[in-house]
Design a protein around this nucleic acid. Sequence first.
RNA 1: GCCCGCCUGGCGGAAUGGUAGACGCAGCGGACUUAAAAUCCGCAGCCCAUAGGGCGUGCCGGUUCGAGUCCGGCGGCGGGCACCA
Length: 876
Amino acid sequence: MTTDTISPASPAEASSARYDFGAAETRWQQAWDSADCFSVPDVPPADRPKYYVLEMFPYPSGQLHMGHVRNYTLGDVLARFKRARGHAVLHPMGWDAFGLPAENAARERGSDPARWTLDNIAAMRGTLKRLGLSLNWDREIATCLPDYYGQQQKLFLDLWRHGLVERRDALVNWDPIDQTVLANEQVIDGRGWRSGAVVEKKRLSQWFLKITDFAPDLLSALDGLDDWPERVRVMQAHWIGRSEGARVRFALDRPAGAIESVEVYTTRPDTLFGMSFLAIAADHPLAAIAAQRDPAAAAFVAECRSLGTSEAAIESAEKRGYDTGLRVRHPFIEGATFPVWIANFVLMDYGTGAVFGCPCGDQRDLDFARKYGLPVPVVVLPPGADAEQVTVGDTALDGDGILIHSGFLDGLDTAAGKRAAIDRLEADGAGRGVVNWRLRDWGISRQRAWGCPIPVIHCTACGPQPVPDDQLPVRLPDDLDFARPGNALDHHPSWKHVSCPRCGAAALRETDTCDTFVDSAWYFARFTAPHAETPTDRAAADGWLPVDQYIGGIEHAILHLLYARFFTRAMRATGHLGVDEPFRRLFTQGMVLHESYRDAEGSWLYPDEVIRSTTGAVRRDTGEAVQIGRVEKMSKSKRNTVSPEAIIDRFGADTARWFVLSDSPPERDMEWTEAGVVGAARFGQRVFRLVSQVAAETQPAPMPDAFGDAADTLRRATHRTIAAVTEALESFTYNTAVARLHELASALSDASQQQRVADLDWARRECAETLSLLIGPMMPHLAETLWSALLPGRGLVAETAWPEADASLLVARTVTIAVQIMGKLRGTIEMPPDAPAEQVIAAAEAEQNVARLIEGKRVVKRIHVPNRIVNLVIAG
RNA sequence: GCCCGCCUGGCGGAAUGGUAGACGCAGCGGACUUAAAAUCCGCAGCCCAUAGGGCGUGCCGGUUCGAGUCCGGCGGCGGGCACCA
């Protein structure tokens, strides 16, 4: 190690009145580099526990924003803390580098997507380095490089061999602006999640990953993710959407074309006797037959399709339908038939695309029945209701109850009724109990050039063929033409023309690329062995995984995190991994918010263009009044962004880091304010002055045999702070760690203003050294500056063990005990810690104000909580 | 509509059922200074009162010697999902 060669900070750094953060930060970043402080081997060392800290890797947009600064600072505090606590820490960084913006830039400015992306990465890497993050830069990956996506192609082929990939025709969500297919998860309110365009339906041959194979496990394993936020688990459970019910076949009265029956999925087979009608989706095959026979039915089907997912769908939340004239027989009621309606609220891609309408037990069915005058048989008796009196008005009885008017089900409760109905259906061959899932398979085909090529060759004779291993990776061409709309890979002159690996005939490459969510679904595993010739190296993956702490935004609660959980299972099935779950602990951090500003014309202004005072704001250039808008998420459109680079230039990385850690708990949104940054900078300077003074006035010395009051008080503050900060860092309450360090700085300041004596000097030095180590995870550069000034030649904070609190100093010398009468505070007393109860109570009753108030009263009960409180209960 | 979460000074927030408001920001007073900046010291929930007292963690009620914290109900704010049969 290089510790011997590290010289103390220069006199200018260490003793000038103000801390020169710029020089110091560069200097320590170089020192960490040359000492190689943060590297770890692919297989974790056996002598220390491993700890894998991962923050969600960024998309290389070109600029780091404050959200990143917060995210990566939170992770870095943990990484540095765990390292100081003796862990081997894996803390890598990379780039989610495929995606549309690069293609858009290519289209708009003629740039090369690879060049554009790599330039952006270089810029953002520079900012990350300036932040002083303790990252394993030798593990850096970019998903747009063949090193990464080539391994992804191998992975894809392995999944294919294991039956986890399927190619099938599917009605897909087509984004007409981005000219690509979207996953269901990427369609929000009928619009593309990125473009905002109204999504159309289109039938295409697509590649699917069989995430539904793992649906039961993805759901049940959520229970074991104790260190994930509850709401994320709830969101995922809902997304996976398990339901228990029955499939019931309804025979048609008279066959319609080739169709003799309609299958329905229901979660309420117990209410089958409450049936009023059968409803099918507009895309149901039976609807197509009805449409052939009846122009009005065709018109209704067409209308449903056009409404589809558009705004109109939201506008007409109204249930609408069309009676086809077809009728179905009831499985339980001999001779009864019911009408078949096409209904706009029935979804073709959930269940079977058909439902039986039970208006009494389902609000939608009830609305529908009321609208079209269909009967509403009552079959559920809610708890406490009277069988003679129960009626259904405009609210369905969708809760549990006792079944009535239901033949053989009469008198059963909901659960028993379901079982009995399913038993009968199965006995009669009319249906069966099933478990249904909302989760669908993951369509990953995207008609984009800037993505991971799907390594498949289509041969007219042999069908789709995997690209042979010796031809991997399938590289993207470097001469893509983005002038034409559509997929640039598809209209590249030569790229797709290859020969079939099986028969040698002329064949075509797959020109679709992977959804970029595939790239991020396994990167955490690749980080464990980023240079391996296979997707993972088992020794490395087994050694480091799972990620011990994953940190990122709540916006990825469903998509990314579910895909990563799926890939972990899929890669386990293919032997690439050995773990069940990718992320042991998940932390979702809050957003960074800022005030927004508008000028008289209503144009948004950047914070830099505004001078803010306590009373208002004016334009920096003209002095005109500025309207202060809402505090909201930093965004380019509102111009309420603050550049991390500019903040580092003005205040230094440590100040930026300290500020994002202060005040707001990490999981909550925080407001970025100029005053807050200035406050953080002020604290850094204060600590610098206080510790520099100690460094100048004191020398390392053997511990004195005894300490006076002042020294003892300071030592207790020091050791209590060690305990408190340690606890705060363990529990992710960084804002309280900041508060405790403020207190310790104040304690040191108080001590430094007292008469100098040897034992106090020793305690001040102990405090200063401790303070330097404790701020290390948060303000690492300042910590190194102070440490080297206090203890020249003693190595780097980055390589120094975390301080241990002396248990004997964790209690104060005296404790303040509150004295209550009937639960109301009436005075306080000072006592030695752990004083005997009788003594404390006697002192409490002797307290001047307390004594006055209990005089002449009878104290009937005395509650004593050691070192906390005495509560006197008086009679009358 | 359903499911989560939250509600504490001027602001961000702190508080294993035990002195509510730590710590910071903004504010006020003072010291230093020719002055300012910087720095240091101090004050600071509201109301009445010069000892002290009343009220106070969205609202109403409950449990408890004691409730921001636990329980029941109501209200408000934020987020997620949403014809999922």
